[in-house]
Design a protein around this nucleic acid. Structure first.
Length: 723
DNA sequence: CCAGGACACGTTTTT
DNA sequence: CGTGTCCTGG
């Protein structure tokens, strides 16, 4: 057998992992050490060499993107499509199980998945119904419920400990669950919980899947939450062969239930585990890698590993101290300009930040500089309001008892069914433990005024009519018909301006999405149900034209798993990063540091770290210190673009004690010019110095004038008065 | 029903 | 500063 394609270009550790015996294996894979490579090659090895049927393999990831990529890479390694291989996200796989065994799982056949937004609406309604005081914030209730579910806990497992607040929370959880069960609604956490209970409570079913899935491949293992781990644990039993890959240093999702401790737990649960560490990095220069190692070394809770590379030392990490966030943006944009002018791809450059709010100033700068960019993490296609409206019609057609959808569209477009009428339906529904749909039918005949009753009946008829008319349409015609006949299209057309137009376009785009949707014949669902599940589980891309060549903007969280030749870590200030809310909690701080480690290791060749002395945040100017993480990078890897002293003090008082290498341009120093200095110009009036460059006769400063915007002026001609 | 104003609030995100 | 939510008046 020729195993070359599967084993070639693997280092020893990688090969050891890929070819490991059929025993539990834990791969600790540092950033850029070929984690995905090991997983995909392992799958190919099992199938092609060990002759394991793809049928007995289960591969689990966290994102749809990762799942799709894994399948692609396995198929290209084996040079054939792999059928019967289950690859998916935890949620996707759980969903698949629940569809197959809906009866055993205690679900209606046409159950629907609700996303967090739907969930929140439901909870809002619940809180309102119960007329609780203002201290009951729906978001917090949602958080509580999901946290319990993530731990595998039902209301009956919870104890109020005599705490009335907690008792109420638990009661709300119970009520919420009843509401979901009545409407056949399953939220994200519920998918996992149900799938776990399905196996736990049906031993013969579990035995079946244990027999089938001998080999379990798990990606990003450090991100598993309790219920995900329990699910894997249950499936593996004593005979399964789990092969898990993760990096404790890249665990950045504790706040949403992920527990790194599962890495240790795994070794306890599977004492025969072989541990393989991948420590050779193929991504970054030695400088970047060493810097990352030095930073993460400050964490106490580590399994311990040290990444190394055979690669070149590379450029120093450039640290820039900006005067304010605008100056920071200007600096970043200047460097991007150079990068692009040198013929590099914009898409190879990424600007990373801790929180989304920071993107604004950067975006403004990029727009001014006419540099195309793309911000990750916005609203995604299937999350847009108009799309969810259309989906709600479709869902109501599929299942009349879906209260979540009913409430969403009962008066959208407006059809004279006001809050009072809806409230009447709600109270009837509550009193009779029935769905809104039934309630509407029941009260329309007597309780309501004739005007309201007519409106309600018209709505009920509309839905029945749509269901009837489209019953033998194919999916795209169904969608097309519904968005028109429901009045949604006309409703948004009336919206003036660009907004309405985009909404209509999006609705039409939904028809195209339905057209391009290929139902899986193996799934025993109607194409509509499958499309709706797909919409909930895979919210789609944030922005349409993903592959125009543009600079990438995203949070450090969303950058995990990606790499770029040029990376900017912006807003590196204490209070922002590490974030204020984590700064006083040792665990929180360690997680922030891991995030920093993730950020640094995204860079392949060039890394800029920037911070601002002054930042306008929430409308207030704040002064802040450079992030402690910057000082955790050893000086030898750092080159300061502009020493801080220039910014805070006039140059002539500059301290000479700089250990770090420095470009030590001291523009305008002789003239007493410094950033933030107020100046007056004969013609342009008063302004503030934002930037300076060059020396002597060529020294120039950028001044932001109160009237007339920013201008570059040559110092020797401008005759600026210091103020 | 909606526009407009007062007011609160302000990590990180995938499914 | 900006956004989102809630309330009021037309």
């Amino acid at each position: 057998m020729d195993v070359t394609p599967i084993l070639e270009n693997l280092n020893d550790a990688q090969r050891q992992a890929v070819t490991a015996e059929a025993e539990p294996t834990l791969v600790i894979a540092g950033a850029g050490s070929g984690k995905t490579r090991v997983l995909t090659h392992r799958a190919a090895w099992l199938i092609d060499v060990e002759r394991i049927s793809p049928h007995s393999l289960l591969a689990v990831t966290f994102t749809n993107k990762a799942a799709a990529e894994m399948r692609n890479r396995i198929e290209s390694l084996l040079d054939m499509p792999v059928r019967h291989l289950w690859i998916g996200t935890f949620h996707g796989l759980a969903h698949r199980l629940l569809r197959r065994h809906w009866r055993e799982a205690g679900l209606p056949q046409s159950f629907q998945i609700i996303d967090s937004d739907d969930q929140l609406r439901l909870i809002k309604r619940l809180v309102k119904n119960l007329e609780l005081d203002d201290s009951w914030v729906p978001r917090e209730v949602q958080y509580f419920i999901n946290a319990q579910k993530d731990e595998g806990l039902r209301p009956k497992h919870l104890d109020d400990d005599g705490d009335p607040h907690r008792r109420q929370m638990i009661a709300l959880y119970g009520e919420y669950q009843q509401l979901c069960d009545r409407g056949g609604l399953v939220d994200f956490a519920e998918l996992l919980l149900r799938a776990h209970e399905l196996w736990r409570d049906n031993p013969e079913l579990l035995a079946h899947y244990r027999r089938r899935f001998q080999h379990l491949l798990v990606d990003e293992f450090q991100d598993t939450n309790a219920i995900q781990y329990a699910w894997l644990r249950l499936l593996a039993g004593d005979g399964g062969v789990p092969f898990v890959v993760g990096d404790d240093d890249q665990s950045i999702y504790r706040w949403r239930g992920a527990r790194v401790e599962h890495i240790r737990q795994f070794q306890k649960d599977f004492p025969a585990t072989t541990v393989v560490k991948l420590e050779q990095n193929y991504r970054s220069t030695a400088t970047i890698l060493n810097a990352a190692n030095a930073v993460i070394a400050n964490n106490a809770e580590r399994m311990g590993k040290n990444l190394w590379t055979e690669g070149a030392e590379g450029e120093a990490i450039r640290v820039y101290s900006a005067y304010n966030e605008r100056d920071e943006a200007d600096f970043v944009i200047g460097r991007l300009r150079d990068w692009i002018d040198q013929g590099n791809l914009r898409a190879d450059a990424a600007i990373l930040y801790r929180s989304n709010a920071q993107s604004r100033v950067l975006e403004e700068g990029l727009i001014n500089a006419r540099i195309p960019y793309r911000v990750y993490g916005g609203l995604r296609f299937f999350e847009r309001a108009e799309i969810k409206d259309a989906l709600a019609y479709l869902r109501l057609i599929a299942n009349r008892d879906d209260d979540s959808s009913f409430e969403r569209i009962v008066n959208r477009p407006t059809r004279g069914i006001g809050a009072r009428t809806v409230e009447a339906m709600r109270s009837y529904a509550r009193a009779n433990s029935c769905s809104m749909w039934r309630a509407a039918g029941a009260i329309a005949s007597d309780e309501l005024s004739s005007r309201a009753a007519n409106a309600v009946l018209a709505f009920l008829h509309l839905i029945e009519r749509l269901a009837h008319e489209t019953s033998d349409f194919d999916l795209q015609d169904q969608v097309d018909h519904v968005i028109h006949a429901s009045g949604l299209i006309d409703f948004f057309k009336k919206d003036k301006g660009e907004k309405g137009e985009t909404r209509v376009e999006n609705l039409l785009e939904l028809v195209s999405a339905a057209k391009g949707f290929e139902p899986d014949p193996a799934e025993e669902m109607s194409p509509l149900d499958e499309f709706l599940s797909h919409a909930a589980l895979e919210a789609g891309e944030g922005q349409a034209e993903a592959w125009e060549d543009c600079v990438q903007l995203m949070t450090m969280h969303s950058a995990k798993g990606l790499e770029f030749p040029l990376v900017f870590l912006s807003g590196m200030e204490d209070g922002l990063f590490p974030h204020q809310r984590s700064i006083n909690d040792p665990n929180g701080l360690e997680e922030e540091r891991r995030l920093c480690y993730v950020g640094i290791t995204r860079a392949k060749q060039t890394l800029y770290v920037t911070h601002a002395e002054q930042r306008r945040l929430h409308g207030m100017d704040n002064f802040s210190q450079p992030s402690r993480f910057i000082s955790e990078i050893p000086d030898e890897y750092v080159e300061e673009i502009r020493p801080r002293v220039q910014v805070t003090r006039p140059m002539h008082t500059a301290s000479p004690s700089r250990r770090r290498r420095s470009t030590s341009i001291a523009p305008g120093a002789e003239a007493g010019i410094r950033l933030g200095q107020r100046v007056r110009h004969g013609k342009f009036g008063d302004g503030v110095i934002l930037n300076c460059e060059g020396q002597g006769a060529h020294a120039r400063v950028e001044v932001n004038f109160e009237t007339g915007g920013t201008k570059w002026l040559v110092l020797s001609y401008a005759n600026l008065d210091l103020m």
